[in-house]
């Protein structure tokens, strides 16, 4: 059975400017342990899909299941890494941020500290746990966000362009680290991006979205390349071209 199921999911926003169908008839099964990249142009509805899976927003059509149960609100079984880093708590240290979910569950101080240290190490920030978010770089903040989500041991990790605001070099480093962490933990990931190379480097499957209104899944391409991925290899280039061809039509309006 799929871990997450989206069945004919649709979302229509109604506001002052009238109704806007952001997502239409979106159907997808996410299997346990896969790394699924949702790729699409700006405004095609990627964030809307992720927000519905996270439970921040309700679908106006279809349904979303997690382990066969309908999703209707945010919960600890779905960890989210946000695009910006406003989601970190400025008044807590990096370590306390990572331990936040454990604290909510009433885990003892010593135990959650040890666990947080473990994840701090996993994201490569050993020794930096006492710093506050204001003392961390953008890349470090995203590492903390990832560690915070992982420390809570969710069933699935939802990531909305987590590296979108970083410079190209930091982004490449963090992509490598995320790939390594995923290989270690085999956590199911739904990862949103509009960067083709990022998708091909990270994903076991890439889903390409069609432009809105009524954004929906256009094609799903498995990327059967071994990890760690060699970005200059012919196989990587071939996969890149395949995805690029699909996205190209979206960017330039052909259907």
């Amino acid at each position: 059975m799929a871990l997450v199921t989206l069945e004919g999911v649709g979302k229509t926003y109604r506001g002052r400017t009238g109704a806007w169908e952001a997502v239409r008839d979106f159907t997808l099964d996410l299997a346990e342990g896969e790394f699924f990249c949702l790729l699409g142009t700006s405004g095609c509805g990627k964030t809307t899909v992720l927000n519905m899976v996270a439970g921040f927003e309700q679908p106006t059509a279809g349904r979303i299941l997690l382990d066969g149960r309908p999703v209707d609100r945010p919960g600890a079984d779905r960890g989210v890494v946000f695009q910006g880093h406003d989601s970190l708590y400025d008044w807590l240290t990096a370590l306390d941020n990572i331990a936040f979910g454990l604290r909510l569950r009433g885990m003892g101080r010593g135990e959650r500290r040890a666990k947080a240290e473990h994840y701090l190490k996993m994201v490569g920030l050993t020794g930096q746990g006492a710093k506050h978010p204001s003392e961390l770089s953008g890349g470090m903040k995203q590492r903390i966000q990832i560690a915070r989500a992982l420390a809570n041991d969710p069933r699935i990790l939802l990531m909305d362009e987590p590296f979108g605001a970083l410079d190209a070099m930091t982004r490449a480093v963090l992509q490598g680290e995320l790939s390594r962490i995923w290989a270690e933990t085999r956590k199911t990931v739904l990862f949103i991006t509009h960067d083709i190379e990022e998708a091909v480097a990270l994903a076991t499957r890439v889903g390409v979205m069609k432009r809105g209104p009524g954004g929906t899944l256009k094609a799903v391409i498995p990327i059967d390349l071994p990890f760690p991925r060699e970005r200059t290899s012919d196989a990587f280039m071939a996969a890149f071209r395949e995805v690029h061809a699909l996205i190209h039509d979206e960017i330039h309006g052909a259907h």
Binding site: A54, S87, Y89, A149
Partner: peptide, 14 residues
Amino acid sequence: VGRDKIRAAQCLGA
């Protein structure tokens, strides 16, 4: 209070 701060807490189980 930032929306993401509240959402982050919600999906950590708050």
